[in-house]
Every structure is written in C-alpha cells, then in structure tokens.
Amino acid sequence: MPQPSHASETLPTMIPRPDLDPRTFHEHAGHSESETIHADRRRGRGAGLNMSGRFERESREALDDGWGSLEELPPFQTDVQEERARTIITRNASPDISFDRSINPYRGCEHGCIYCFARPSHAFLGLSPGLDFEAKLFAKPNAAEVLERELARPGYQPRTIAIGTNTDPYQPIERSYGLMREILEVLDRYNHPVAIVTKSALIERDADILGRMAERNLAKVALSITTLDRKLCRAMEPRASAPHKRLAALKTLAEAGVPASVMIAPVIPALTDSELESILEAAAEHGADGAAFILLRLPREVSELFRDWLVRERPRQYRHVMNLIRSMRDGKDYDAKWGERMRGTGPYAEQIARRFQLATKRLGLNGRRRKLDCDQFVAPQKGGVQLALF
C-alpha cells in the first residue's frame, strides 16, 4: 500500500515550525508558507511543495506545542513500491495526439521535472503531485509478462505503442529494474512497432534492440531537450540526464540506425524559448532527423508547483513568464482545449511556431514523416509461445 503523503505535514501559517523556511514564502505564488518544504529536505528535487492530493478528505498537521517536541523530519528519499499490473497497454482517444495506446512501466518519475504535466496523476494514488510524485514511485515488475499476454488476445490489432507519455521509462530506477528492456524484448520478438520519448541517456543501453527493430521499421526515439543551460536544467529537471548527455544519446542512436528526433518539450516563454534554434542546431549536429515542440502546459496542481519554482529559482522573471503564458492560454494558466493545449494561441505562440518552422526547414529536419510498420506483427500463441515461421 502507498505510504501516507508528506502533504500531511502542512499546518496553519500562524504556527511557527523549524521545518519550514520562511524565506521561500511568497504570497503571490499562490500557496501558504505551511506548504513549503525546507530546502534541506528537498535537496536534489524539483518541487518545493507537497500539498495534499485533491481527492483527500483528511489531512494531518504537525504542531509544535512550545516545548521543542517537534522533531526535524528527514530528507525525502526515493521509495519504490512494486505493484502487479493487471493490464499494461493504456488506451486513449485524444484527437490531438498521434497515438492511441501507450505503456507506463512506472508511476511517478524521479527526474523531478517541475513542469511535468503528469504530476496530477499521483493524486489518484492518494499522494501529492508535488514531492511525492518524484520520491514515491511504483514499479510494475510483471509489465513484460502482461504485455505478451495482451498482444496474444484474439482480435488484437497492432498500432504503434508510445512509451514515455506519463512517466519516463528510463528514469534512474530503470537501471536496477530493467523493465523497459524486458518490454522491448517482447516487442522485438513479435515485430510490434514502438515510439519512445525520454530525457535519459540510459536509452543508449538498449541501442542494440532498438537498432534491430529500426532495421525492420519498428522503432523510433525522441530525446526531450528543454535547455542547453546546465544550471537551469539542474534546477528544472534535477535528476534527468544533463543536456550534453542527451545529445550524445541522440548520436549513439542515430549511429545505430535508429530514427532519432529531438522533442523540445516544453518551450517556456521568456525562460527557454530563446534557445529554440540552438537546441535544434545541436540536435541536427548529433544526428537528429526530426523535431517537435510542445508549449508549456500547467494543468491542475502543476500550475501552483511551477509558480512556486519560479519564485524560488527565477524571481525576477516571474511576472514576465506568467504574463506570457496567460497571453497564450486565453488569460489563464492553462487551457485544455483540443488542438490548442500543445501550441497555445495568440501572437507570441504564433511567433514560436513560425521560428520552429523556419529553423527545421533550414536544418533539414522533418523532411519526411516516418510511419512505423504494423504489418509485420505476429501475435504470440496462447502461453506466449510463438509458432515457427516457414
């Protein structure tokens, strides 16, 4: 069972508490001082808050009675729990994305990207979209076994499976669990196409499998790069691979024959948008043959978490960044309209899109769209044994 969320540590703002750092409190960021976790406890993490999940009816408060009885709490440690998956292929019918199915071998993501649109999903587990999302993780050790069973179901129709949509499959715990490699072995065995997005150089480990699949037009990969500024990257994506490591992974995959592209996701106005062309140029130099971008998305709790991060890390840019975001989101922090949520609207959004278009054309990126082959798929027999082919 999931452990109780650290969101229970919140308390009214009028009660002093040594665990909370008053220097990080800014009223205009939209949260109370009581929700802020002291910097010593969240070192190496992206989020500075750990608010209760939106579905929780109760919360607990830590209260100092004046006798010094409130113990200092330990730093947030990564806690991984295993869960046996009943199903592994997730379906969607979103009209503005290119895939209808995906796999997430983990829940939560230790990369800790402050802007991650998947953070609100942790609330369904009774945990916080804040620090819990990057510290309390769930692994599905039977993912490959369940995948093979689902591919064997009568009537299964193959289409490209996307991996890296709600959690990064190559986050640090993949080094010990190896779930992604097991999944790729199943997909390779039955000639099933896969498209991967990651911020981790760990994907180089699987260049052998991906290279074999790419020879049969069954695999493609996108490395997500938001900035080339290592200091900004460390603050914004604390446990993801450094930018130069991701570029090196692009080169490794390209040399292995894997179609590799760069995903600039998200583009953050007045913070990273000035790097759009330089990221594309660096990616092209390292073998990328395609590119895409997504404008910053701030659904539900992500808005509060990102605004708190801005106040801590880029206070002088806070107003400028948020004003530009709202100018592209109909005056709101986020607008979830189909077709607009990825790109935004208005002059500034149009300018970013135009710059991207001109740069990719100049660099020869996106010369042709690659559609993976679904016709080679051979379904596993019952029990997971494939018939020999003659």
Rank of each mutant, 00 (worst) to 15 (best):
R216W: 04
R354Q: 14
D100H: 14
L20P: 00
A242F: 13
M51E: 04
G339T: 09
P141H: 07
A85V: 10
V194T: 03
L298W: 12
I325S: 01
A242V: 14
E83P: 01
I225H: 12
G178F: 02
R329S: 10
A152T: 13
G48V: 10
L127M: 02
K337I: 08
A62L: 11
A242I: 03
M213N: 06
R368F: 11
E33H: 05
D330M: 10
H111R: 13
M263V: 11
P95D: 02
D79Y: 12
E281K: 11
D308S: 07
K371L: 09
R314V: 11
R23D: 09
E134C: 07
D308F: 03
T167I: 07
E72I: 04
R41M: 08
S59D: 15
Q357Y: 14
V267D: 04
L358H: 09
A336F: 03
A256Q: 10
D19A: 08
E185R: 15
Y348Q: 10
S224L: 09
A353H: 12
H28A: 07
S261H: 09
S94C: 11
I225C: 02
P18D: 03
T252S: 14
M213P: 00
A144V: 00
L365E: 02
A47W: 02
L232Q: 15
R189Y: 05
C233S: 15
K251P: 00
A270M: 15
A201H: 14
I103L: 01
S121T: 15
D335K: 09
Q317K: 12
A359Y: 09
I325V: 14
E255N: 14
T345Q: 15
S52I: 13
H320Q: 14
P266D: 13
M213T: 12
N50D: 07
Y334R: 10
G66I: 05
I268H: 04
H31D: 04
R355E: 02
Q3V: 10
V258F: 11
R354F: 00
Y348K: 13
L137T: 08
G66W: 06
G290N: 01
R370F: 07
E110G: 12
I183P: 02
P158Q: 06
I279W: 11
S34T: 04
Y190F: 13
A219F: 05
T252N: 08
K140A: 08
T272K: 03
D229W: 00
A93F: 15
N366Q: 11
K136L: 13
R60C: 08
A162Y: 07
K199H: 08
G126F: 06
Q157K: 15
M51P: 01
R212F: 09
A93I: 09
K361M: 07
P4H: 15
A135D: 12
